[in-house]
Design a protein around this nucleic acid. Structure first.
Lengths: 238, 238
DNA sequence: CGGATAATTGATGGCTATCAACCGGAGTGG
DNA sequence: CCACTCCGGTTGATAGCCATCAATTATCCG
């Protein structure tokens, strides 16, 4: 597969046209923003599709856009000087990628890479900068997005980076199942799991295989899986 | 020592009176906020001192206040169902504690405990909520504080929770030295180090002792230490 | 000085990284 | 169509790191 970003223009529009009927809007950045305010945001917004493995943006690039994720899973990762990769967040429908673009004069802090085919809205940072003081709703939504991101980071520090690897894998499965809002969720590859949990791919593989043998979760086609969350919670005493 | 919070009222004032001459203002939440805007915030602000070991706020309490840290070190920690404690952030002069108070209807996500005697300004959340849309400067500062917190979380995930414990300890020392802006920094106790790095107190102690024997850093009185940052960076290849 | 708490050090076992081999599916080219 | 390669997942063997348990020393404070 072509590993460079394959950006495919999907549609270009103005907020007043499409955002009002966007199926993701109720959970996304422009939730509750009044049609009048949307109408006043007269900058073009692109909807884009990126194939699995493609890069949305990279560390150090200037932050010109925010991205609302409509579909798929996006990973944010950083590389250490020692060469290891670490995934610091997984974004799903409604989440905001590149939120650091709303503070002036910045660069992206992560490599944003599609773990599945994703669909995003590419929002010029200046729109959000301008209107976050003009639209009370946008301002509140932005705060919520910051808080969500931070709360998730805290969860990752406490639940996914602490304790024996068995617990970490179990907690990851619980987290994936619960943040997905459906009975099936996307199961990351073993390498990605390792980079989320700070364990090796072999360890992740062994533990996943073991949990599967114990009937605590199932793997389906196309990378989907479903878990017995209650049983998993007993393991980690939640 | 009394482990419950020892809150000692220091001074009560209104933003217009004291904030303009606050020595922490240039790096704190009200940096660049115009005197007029400060004047309009007519809610009382308390300055408080909390002794080492005291609690500023706890998990689950309603978020009525934000705190600007003027002096000392404050840890934010969370407890796992398994009983382990995890420190998810260390706050120093200019940092904002309880930032989650700016989104409505919330509770604190951490226990905030003083690692040294600290001095804070207790700011009613409603002031910030009101004025974050009215004062452009406050709005920008708030975004910056969110971003700082998130960037720190990312650093902790990548540098302090990944790799062998020796690297983690070294990276923690580098981080402490570099975020302190002075030649000496507060060295956390071994137990706290363990809860930052997800290692045991014994492991933290062994590695610290070893680095000290190797002359890579020195411990002074009152919990201060200084490090040979360049030498430490070579160890972790930075 | 005595008591409590923190730091240090030692001995040991278990967990997990590492190295290695093997399997299976997807894609490719003969 | 089949052989081949590549890549991700799985499994095994081993070594080494680190948690655990335990004991000793240091430090702080009344």
């Amino acid at each position: 597969m072509d590993t460079t970003a394959r950006l495919e223009d999907f549609h270009t529009f103005f907020p007043s046209e499409m955002c009002v009927s966007c199926p993701t809007r109720d959970i996304a950045l422009f939730a509750n923003v009044t049609p009048e305010d949307l109408h006043n945001m007269d900058a073009p917004i692109h909807s884009e599709v990126i194939e699995k493995g493609g890069k949305l943006y990279g560390v150090g690039e200037p932050t010109e856009y925010l991205y609302t994720l409509h579909d798929g899973v996006l990973k944010l990762e950083q590389e250490l000087p020692t060469g290891e990769q670490r995934i610091v967040r997984l974004l799903k429908r409604g989440d905001l990628a590149g939120i650091e673009a709303v503070t002036s004069g910045n660069t992206y802090q992560h490599d944003a890479i599609a773990m599945t085919t994703i669909r995003v809205c590419k929002i010029p940072a200046e729109i959000v900068l301008d209107f976050s003081t003009k639209s009370l709703e946008l301002h509140e939504n932005l705060m919520k997005k910051w808080q969500d991101a931070l709360a998730t980071s805290d969860t990752w520090l406490t639940k996914l980076s602490t304790g024996p690897s068995r617990y970490r894998v179990v907690r990851l499965l619980i987290w994936l199942a619960e943040t997905c809002n459906e009975d099936q969720f996307i199961l990351p590859g073993r390498k990605d799991m390792g980079n989320i949990l700070s364990v090796t791919t072999e360890t992740a593989s062994r533990l996943i295989a073991e949990l599967r043998r114990d009937g605590l979760f199932e793997v389906h086609e196309h990378g989907y899986a479903s878990a017995n969350v209650d049983a998993l919670k007993k393991i980690v005493k939640e």
